[in-house]
Simulated scan of single mutants.
Amino acid sequence: MMFSVDETLRPGSQSPAQMPDELVPSRYALRVGEIDVLVISDGVFPLPATTLATNADPADLAAWLDDRRQPSDVYKWPLNVVVVRSGGRTVLIDSGMGEEYPDFPRAGGLLAHRLEHAGIDPASVTDVVLTHVHVDHVGGLLADGLKGRLRPDVPIHVAAAEVEFWESPDFSRNTFGGMPDVLRSAAKRFLDEYRSQLRPFDAEYEVAPGVVVCRTGGHTPGHSVVRLASGGDRLTFLGDAVFPDHFDRPDWHNAFDHDPEEAVRVRVRLLRELAQTREPLVATHLSFPSFGRVAVAGDVFRWVPVDWDY
């Protein structure tokens, strides 16, 4: 069944007419064969623009930002989460930021509110998949909006290498070194809260029919992507394998890459593969709804957003 507000409202929930309107769209539905996909915006997260590229020449980064008419000091990272329905299972892929930054304006951490607006009851989620255990991907599971409303035994699928890393995290390869306390704290609380529900996998795992989570490494040791395939259609959720600047400069190191050089290798491999197959992708930090394709442009790449279907 295709996602829609009317069809996904749970019994006893508010009707769309009773819900306060949002000023901008926050969810985008599409179909991959028989698999229903809903991209949901968790909001945006303003960070220093230098977090986009720690190894960039400051003038080159300033030029990239100016070319996109972005301010030179702050970049608002989009935060996208995906809900997938396949074979009677409802899979939540990542959980957004939650309430991990109470001193920040509430520009992110909106997932629980927007799930409600989409008529999706957290208790209907049969599986959770985490691309990795960074705070903006697990924070929603620590917040009241989802915590306690998910099934108490809902399985959480995450790469075994990711769990092992966060048991004793090593930031020595990270070139930025920023926010380690926040990253460690959120990861520790997540592991303490959900350890009994973790379902670690080594290389890949089919969570639902045609929904396969695959470890890539790079951004974090257990970073994973999610491959969807049904009826000849394909879609890949790239998580944090690619950021907006990486089409033009795939060699730039994101501030939160735990192994920057490996992250570059993973990124280039995935982008070349997707350019060759022309299959669409979605990613956490591309502008909502982050649904598009990638093309090769000489030695770099070109982002090709898919036109919205109204």
Rank of each mutant, 00 (worst) to 15 (best):
F3L: 06
P11R: 06
S13K: 00
A17S: 14
A17Q: 15
Q18G: 13
D21W: 14
E22F: 14
L23R: 14
S26E: 08
Y28N: 00
Y28R: 01
A29S: 14
R31P: 01
I35A: 05
I35T: 07
I35Y: 05
L38M: 14
D42C: 05
V44R: 07
P46I: 05
L47P: 00
L47K: 10
A49H: 07
T51R: 06
N55R: 11
A62Y: 06
W64N: 00
L65Y: 12
L79Q: 06
V83M: 13
S86G: 08
G87C: 09
R89P: 00
E99Q: 13
E99V: 02
Y101P: 00
P105E: 11
R106C: 01
A107W: 14
A107R: 07
G108L: 01
G109H: 03
H113Y: 07
I120D: 07
T126H: 12
T126R: 08
D127T: 03
D127E: 12
V128Q: 05
V133Y: 08
H134M: 15
V138N: 08
L141C: 05
L146H: 04
R149D: 05
L150Q: 02
R151F: 06
P155C: 10
E162M: 04
E164H: 08
F165N: 00
R173L: 15
N174M: 13
G178H: 15
V182Y: 13
K188A: 15
V211A: 10
G218L: 13
V225E: 10
V226M: 13
G232C: 04
R234E: 15
L235Y: 08
F237L: 15
L238M: 15
L238R: 07
V242L: 12
H246Y: 05
A255D: 13
P260K: 06
V264H: 04
E273F: 09
V282G: 00
H285S: 02
P289F: 09
P289C: 04
F291R: 02
V300W: 10
V300E: 10
R302N: 02
Y310K: 03
